[in-house]
């Protein structure tokens, strides 16, 4: 039901915690995976942990020319892109009244504009093949907001709106477009939290623990699979019950 043999996936931000877990999980289901990111060494490390076929496609998502080339490169090395995972993202936190233009622009560019370009380029081949999966990693913050993250929240909410609109347009062509909204996930970033911060966060999470990157990857595999063919325009919340909507 969740077999991805013969499918070709492109994952952005593939050297990060969630991105690498997604790449490994897709490969474990049989997909060929193209790993994209800026740190080639880190991408190579992820590739080493994958027994299936992988390709490394370095790309700086703040360079729109490079962004436009990424999907064609992936199509060239794999013969097509059936599954696009818009995972790469960044934060540049500041309270709203102090937020700099660059802080706003940089976050929107990486988190929302780059996915728009990548998706627009990938959708063409998907339309021809009458199959496609576009999965964007959003955030619980895009659903409920977060002080200090107006730019990040806007970009993540934007992904959901973009995905829903596109989902309408291409549903009849066998293409589904969804987002996954992780809650607090254990990562290098959350490792830096002190005990008190950690406690404050966990008080909001009925599950009483942080999520794992593998749990986001599992949700991604599900949405990428044939089994999820009737799910589109959806935001899958993976947050331990932190927000139930």
């Amino acid at each position: 039901m969740f077999d991805l043999s013969g499918k070709r996936a492109l994952v952005t931000g593939a050297s990060g915690g969630i991105g690498s877990a997604i790449a490994k999980a897709l490969a474990a289901q049989g997909a060929t995976v193209a790993l994209s990111g800026t740190r080639v060494g880190a991408l190579e490390d992820v590739a080493k942990e994958i027994s299936g076929q992988t390709h490394i496609l370095p790309c700086n998502l703040s360079d729109l020319d490079a962004v436009e080339r990424l999907v064609p490169q992936a199509e060239e090395v794999m013969g097509g892109v059936d599954i696009l995972i818009n995972n790469a993202g960044m934060t540049r936190d500041n309270i709203f009244m102090r937020m700099k233009d660059e802080e706003w622009d940089d976050v929107l560019k990486i988190n929302l504009t780059a996915p728009f370009h990548l998706t627009r380029s990938a959708i063409k081949g998907m339309m021809k093949r009458r199959f496609g999966r576009v999965i964007s990693i959003s955030s619980v913050v895009g659903v409920v907001g977060n002080p200090g993250q107006a730019n990040y929240a806007a970009s993540k909410a934007g992904l959901a709106g973009m995905s829903k609109s596109l989902a309408y347009e291409v549903a009849s062509r066998g293409i589904t477009v969804n987002t996954i909204a992780p809650g607090f996930i254990g990562s290098a970033m959350t490792d830096e939290l002190n005990e008190k911060q950690r406690e404050t966060i966990l008080q909001k999470v009925p599950a009483g623990r942080l999520g794992s990157a593998e749990e986001i990857a599992a949700a991604t595999v599900f949405l990428a699979s044939d089994g999820a063919g009737y799910i589109t325009g959806h935001t899958l919340n993976v947050n331990g019950g932190m927000v139930m909507i």
Binding site: M127, K128, V170
Partner: peptide
């Protein structure tokens, strides 16, 4: 409009 795009493709 989507058919139109596909025709062009």
């Amino acid at each position: 409009s989507l058919d139109q795009v596909e025709l062009v493709m």
